[in-house]
């Protein structure tokens, strides 16, 4: 299995994913900084309308989580489209499936890469942005709530839970993509799923109930199971 993963990296030059992740992290940091400093800038009479997006650390962490989750679910879909959908579209799957390697293992190797990328990416990006925020808090106090070790631990566990769920949710686009081997359907479904789960109206996000993302993640895992189960019997035409 490790060898199959290594070969995928070689085939698609996946080391370049690191560059993409870096860009994503930078953009997310900038976006968060915009929310974060909004109130601060208003108070100093520079800009903004004075409405704070968050008063507590929990709120701040949940915004970071939302940004990171949406970004990596969509990016995961682009990876699914590259690693799996495009093999069907370009018919290179003809080649892959005539190798003395189980079809299931080939697809599983690809999905492991996608899930791992979503999980590790969310963790690193989220951790980085959260860390930067905490450092910034030491100099400019934007969030009125006093900081404690318990808050940091809570934020960190939110991040882990969110990343695990994202890795599962990120598998849902596979279902829509495989139906007609369409890259557009893959990415579009990811955008829709990510936005539905993370829509933030008046501080009320579906994600706040951990149950809903958890159920969605389970749906993603079911998609994986069905896909891998069916792949052995399907005719490649």
């Amino acid at each position: 299995m490790l060898n199959l993963i290594r070969l995928e990296f070689r085939k698609y030059r996946l080391a370049r994913m690191l560059v993409r992740s870096l860009i994503v992290t930078l953009v997310l940091t900038a976006l968060f900084a915009f929310f974060y400093f909004d109130h601060f800038l208003f108070e100093n009479g520079i800009e903004g309308d004075g409405t704070t997006l968050f008063n507590t650390y929990t709120e701040a962490f949940s915004i970071i989580g939302t940004l990171v989750n949406i970004a990596y679910i969509v990016l995961g879909a682009t990876l699914i489209s590259r690693l799996i959908i495009s093999e069907f579209r370009n018919k290179t799957i003809y080649l892959m499936f005539t190798y003395p390697v189980s079809r299931r293992k080939i697809i599983a190797a690809k999905l492991i890469i996608v899930a791992a990328w979503i999980f590790i990416g969310s963790m690193v990006s989220g951790g980085l942005i959260g860390g930067l925020m905490l450092i910034s808090e030491m100099y400019v106090k934007v969030i009125p709530e006093p900081l404690s070790a318990a808050i940091i631990i809570r934020g960190f566990s939110m991040l882990i839970a969110g990343s695990v769920c994202s890795a599962g949710i990120g598998m849902i686009p596979l279902y829509f993509g495989m139906r007609k081997h369409s890259a557009t359907a893959t990415i579009l479904s990811a955008v829709i799923v990510a936005c539905l789960l993370n829509q933030n109206t008046h501080g009320f996000s579906l994600n706040q109930f951990i149950v809903i993302p958890l159920l969605t993640a389970i749906a993603g895992i079911i998609v994986v199971i069905i896909t891998i189960r069916n792949i052995n019997t399907v005719d490649i035409n």
């Binding site: 003809y94 190798y99 003395p100």
Partner: peptide, 14 residues
């Protein structure tokens, strides 16, 4: 499959 090779329809490459 280890002992054979094939080109089906047209050769595909990365």
């Amino acid at each position: 499959l280890k002992r054979m090779s094939s080109i089906i329809e047209f050769p595909v490459f990365y």
